[in-house]
Amino acid sequence: MKRLAFYFDSASCSGCKTCQMACKDKNDLAIGQIWRRVYEVAGGSWKQAGLAWKHDVFAYNLSMSCNHCADPICARNCPTRAIWKREDGIVQINQDLCIGCKYCAWVCPYGAPQFNPEKGVMGKCDLCADYIDEGKNPSCVDACPMRALDFGDYDELLEKHGGSDHIYPLPDNSITEPSLCIKAHKNAGNLNPCVVNVEEVKRAQ
């Protein structure tokens, strides 16, 4: 069975958020709805070394949407079966079935499902399934000026990019087995990382 996935190169991402805007534009999302979010991570500090001051300050970005998990906790717990998985691994929401109980948003560790107050149902990234069916790329992938985003079969992406890293602030992969291949920024393993645009990314949930 095919397992479509995103690839994200944290080392190349400049944090311009064009992917975020392309997603909003393609899906006609209202204010407050951001299906793809860019997390700005920073950390480090200044340290005195003799008479000099040195720093280990670092920053990197993480562009994140639904990861179309192999074991989607949202679909497992959806009371209406509105969340379902296509043959190619894309996790979709059938809004005609959704009751808008928001339980999927509670449990998803990636904050992917978001409530649409106008429609009264949940919505999330569907990997631009309609574009994929037409043989095109997802809008975020094509919009990225740094070519930091890619998509394809999970195993092929792993092979192409030499495996996948796990970076802050992502949760343990074993919970939902996300279909996400990441190339880590060189400083992603540094101590004391924190998300610096909390207000921006949290408001979307």
């Binding site: 009371p79 509105a82 079935l97 959704c98 009751i99 808008g100 409530f115 429609k119 149902v121």
Partner: peptide
């Protein structure tokens, strides 16, 4: 959000 879908 959509009480009319409640039977689902």
């Amino acid at each position: 959000g959509s009480p009319s879908n409640a039977p689902n």
